[in-house]
Structure formats: structure tokens, C-alpha cells
Design a binder for these strands. Structure first.
Lengths: 191, 191
DNA sequence: GAGTTAAGCAAACACTTGTTTGGCTAGTCA
DNA sequence: TGACTAGCCAAACAAGTGTTTGCTTAACTC
């Protein structure tokens, strides 16, 4: 059961890192902080991960997997494009604010902060954005609406929730998604 | 003319810092970077400013002054609340993407990055947000609309433009503001 | 011309950063 | 029992951080 113990320690380590990155950011979290939170010494991290940047990359990977899964399971049972958008927005905001620290890291830490993996991190973000784009693509919109801009607006509004959302602040992630959706639907929908 | 030369050098310094902060961020810009850009040695900065944090605070202050001025002059001549909102959104996006590096810093660098001045920086941001809030307050909205959430959505969408806007990317800041405004108006307006 | 001050240089300081290195220990496997 | 290895510690490393200190130079004031 060697491997199991190894995995559990590696996992504890990456989880500690994810929590710190999600709260303080990447640059403001030192390897010593991570080590302390994981109950080991700074140097010991390098037995599990070759560098701080790799740590971030791993977090991004599982984070994207998680958010894609949440997203998909929220959308899948629905038929109506607008209902699907609303479910997607709620899932998005949930991932940013409430869910796991892995998903929060994706929207908190910008790819440029680990220049070595910039490309990989951007690609991972894109996987999610593409899913979102497809959702907007299916909407029956008035002809004057620029789908590209509309998507950027919705996505931006959601991402920004990270900065003002507080779990005790009256609004749930689902409410926010629902409302945001209502605020645009009747203006841009085809009729 | 001592004072003049002093001001000009201090101004060159702070402008160099503003440009670097706006591009790379606060943490990723070192005092040595700033000194080099301003054509002096690292230690010499401390003749003009007592600390790196103070440098950021000064930039924030003039940045907020600038954005408030831009904002006001864009809104002032207009009467219709919706036209005023659109003008405000355009001014906001312009300040974030095109305008001076001072205004860009306000939306790029978060108050937490200089913990010593967190309060002051938040207060400066609030000055602008309050102006925006007043704009939304004047809108004739349907009764089911939550003004607070609507404002956060619009503001978030605008702030996010910083991440995808590129001056050669087809859209001007004014276009974006105009479109964003159209995307919500007919959904939330009182009728 | 003497005194004063603005402005900046040169060099260091104390500290933090990510990372490396070598050794120790407990458990696995033949 | 003896070789082997996974996992971690202890300690250092080199580089970078914001900042301080003492000194120099030039300009202005009386």
C-alpha cells in the first residue's frame, strides 16, 4: 500500500496548495506556506512535485475536470437553450465562489503568473470557455446581437462575482445565475 | 525652478511605475524595474516616495481622479437615464482598456496587494463605484429587477473587458459599452 | 564666497523567494 | 537477514525582494 500512502500525501499537498492559491493567489503563496499547511518541510514538496509551477498546473487540470463535470451534469437534462444557459451560468458562478478550491484557482490565478506553462494553462481555460461558447451558439438570438460580445459579457459578469460574492451575503450562486440570465434574455432573444 | 524639476522627475517616476503596474501587475514589478524605466537607481526612488505601497496609492489617487473626470464629462450633457448609462459604461471600458495607465492600474491591481493601504485603496475604488451606482439608481426598471445585482453584472462585464480587449481586435471601447447596454435594456426596462 | 538644500549615486542590509543536496528512517521484498 | 526504496528532514544555496545609509554633486539663497 505504498502507492496509496504516497497518493494520499500528494493529494493532501496539492489540496493545501489549491486552498492557499484560491485565497491568497499564486504569487502571494510561498512554498513554505504550502509546506506548513501540508505538515511537512519546504524541501519535501519537491519529492512530490518538481516545481511550484507544476503544482499550479496540476491544480488547473483537476479544476477544469471538476468544473466541466459540474457544468455538464447541470446542462445535460435540459432541452431549452435558455434554460441550459441559465443552468450553465449558475454552475459557473458556483464553481467560482462556492465549490472546490481547485475550480476557484482557475479563475483567481491568471496563466501569466506561471509563464513556463502559460500555454497549457490557457488551453485548459479554453476547454471550459469553448463549452460555454457552444451554449451561447445554440441561443435563438435577434439578428443584431453579436454572439461573441454577448458571451464575453455574460462570462465577465460571472467571473467578477468572485470579487464580491460572500456566502453569507444574501445571494446564492444559483440565484445570481438565474437573475443574470433574466437580465439579458428578453433584450437579446429572437422574437 | 527647483520645484518644477522635482515635480517633473517625480512625475516621470510615478508614470513609469503606473505603466509597469498596469502591464505586469504590482507584485511582478520590482523597484529595480521601476528605477530602470525612470532612468535612476533603485535607492533614488525613496527620495520621492517613502515606499512601494505609497507609489501604488498615489497612482490610485490620480487614476480615480482621471476616471471620475472622464466619466462625468461623458455623462453630464445627457438627460435620458439609459443614454447616461451607456455613456458611463463606455467611459468605464475606455478607462480600463485604452486610456491612461493610471486608470488601468485601478482595475488591474487589487487593494489586497498592498495590505498596508487596503482601506484607502478600497475607498478610492468605492468613489467610482458610488458614481456608477447612482447611474443605475436613476434607471426606470421593472419592479422584479434587483438593482444591486444588475449593477454588479454590468460592472463585472466591463471590468472583465480588460482581459480580452485588444485595441486592434475589431471592437472599440465605445462599441462595447453601447452593445452591452443594448443587451440588457429591453429586458430590465420598465414598460 | 559660505551655507543650505534638492537630487541622486553606490553599496550595502536584512529578508524572502524557489530550489537543491545529502542523509536519515521506516517499511518492502528477495 | 540484507538490499532496496519511498518519503521526508535538515540545512543550505543562489537569486531576488524592498529598503537604508552615507556620500557626492549641483543648484539656489543670502
Amino acid at each position: 500500500m505504498k502507492a496509496q500512502r504516497s497518493n494520499s500525501r500528494s493529494e493532501a499537498l496539492i489540496r493545501a496548495a489549491a486552498e492557499l492559491f484560491a485565497e491568497r493567489g499564486f504569487r502571494s503563496t510561498s512554498m513554505r506556506d504550502i509546506a506548513k499547511a501540508a505538515g511537512m518541510l519546504p524541501g519535501s514538496i519537491y519529492y512530490h512535485f518538481p516545481s511550484k509551477d507544476d503544482l499550479l498546473l496540476s491544480i488547473y487540470e483537476t479544476g477544469v475536470d471538476q468544473i466541466m463535470a459540474t457544468f455538464e451534469s447541470a446542462i445535460d437534462p435540459l432541452e431549452d437553450p435558455w434554460q441550459r444557459l441559465q443552468a450553465g451560468m449558475s454552475a459557473h458562478i458556483r464553481a467560482i465562489t462556492e465549490e472546490s478550491s481547485y475550480t476557484r484557482v482557475i479563475f483567481k490565478v491568471e496563466p501569466d503568473e506561471a509563464p513556463r506553462f502559460r500555454g497549457e494553462l490557457v488551453a485548459l481555460r479554453d476547454r471550459f470557455e469553448a463549452r460555454f461558447r457552444a451554449l451561447v451558439e445554440d441561443l435563438p438570438l435577434a439578428s443584431w446581437v453579436d454572439r461573441h460580445l454577448l458571451r464575453l459579457m455574460i462570462l465577465g459578469a460571472g467571473n467578477h462575482a468572485q470579487l464580491w460574492f460572500s456566502s453569507d451575503g444574501g445571494y446564492s450562486a444559483d440565484e445570481i445565475g438565474k437573475q443574470f440570465c433574466r437580465y439579458v434574455k428578453d433584450a437579446v432573444a429572437l422574437r
